[in-house]
Amino acid sequence: MEGKTAVVTGASRGLGRGIARALGSRGFKVYVTGRSADELSAAAQEIDSFGGKGVPVVCDHSDDAQIGLLFDRVKAESHRLDILINNAAAINARTLSAPGAFWEKPLDLADMISVGLRSNYVAAHHAAPLMIETGDSLIVNISFYGAVSYHYGPAYGATKAGNDKMTFDMAVDLRPHRVTAVSIWPGLVLTDMLKSISRELLPRKLVEDLPNFETPEFTGLVIERLWRDQAKLTRSGTTLISAELGVEYGIRDIDGKQPRLYTDTLGAPRGRFIFPGNQ
């Protein structure tokens, strides 16, 4: 499709940056957002090198006005939006993973509810009119197994569970307009930052398990295939696991492995939310 366009929020590093590279490899023009101009510029260059077109946009997703300007720019420059991937999150990894109960940790851990849940709502709010106009488009809210199992405490869990429920409700409103909204759980991801850490500084058990970690590109490849699925609207409102979609679509990771499911240890989606009038 000529001019196919995506927005990936929180794409200056980590999972978002890998997703953006994968979409670039499929010929997308990808708007990548984050707060670091240098990292976004490097991400955009990677997208270009993978065959797409990277557009870096500095955007603080705690600022509603900046999010609105982002989508104004997408509409003015590209006139369409095929995929929105909400991945931005205000996560301080050191504080989040530190030992202790939630009341013993800094209150700013709750910021991920603002940038990670509320910011996804704001992005979808601004993107929806253009995606309806584009037609057959896809909104993906990045979530995780922490929606149904304990991960890092209540702020993290509320953010992930909230994304899954918000996705369902968005889908109810969007379905008549043939815009699909899903929540996707990636697995454990071998980010560029994790790869750069000396193995001597990591726990032995983690080092042994690293070959099983997904590359950041894998979820992007799965999302692109879902977007091309002519039956994707039937999945709207559901929570999906990238590893399961990979098996269904016959997609392996870029290193050749079939990524692992963690449903036995970390939990599984609890199914569709049911409300009167839900089809």
Rank of each mutant, 00 (worst) to 15 (best):
E2T: 12
G3T: 03
V7R: 05
V8C: 03
S12P: 00
S12V: 02
S12N: 02
G14F: 11
L15Y: 04
G16V: 01
R17E: 10
G18V: 00
A20C: 07
S25Y: 00
R26W: 01
F28N: 00
R35G: 05
S36F: 04
L40G: 06
A43G: 08
Q45S: 13
V57K: 08
V58G: 07
D63V: 15
I67T: 09
I67M: 04
G68F: 05
L69P: 02
D72F: 08
K75W: 05
K75T: 11
L84P: 12
I85S: 05
I85R: 07
I85Y: 08
A90H: 10
T95S: 14
S97R: 14
A101H: 11
A101L: 12
E104T: 12
K105A: 09
P106F: 02
R118D: 02
Y121K: 08
H126L: 09
H126C: 14
P129F: 06
E133P: 00
T134W: 10
I139E: 04
F144C: 14
V148I: 13
V148P: 10
A155V: 01
F168H: 15
A171S: 15
A171W: 08
S183P: 03
S183K: 01
T191I: 04
R199I: 09
R204Q: 15
R204W: 13
K205V: 15
L206P: 11
P211S: 10
N212V: 06
F218V: 04
F218E: 00
G220M: 01
L221V: 03
E224Y: 12
A231Y: 12
R235A: 12
G246M: 06
Y249H: 03
I251H: 05
I251F: 02
I254G: 03
D255S: 09
K257Q: 13
K257N: 08
R260Y: 06
Y262A: 01
D264Q: 14
P276V: 13
G277I: 08
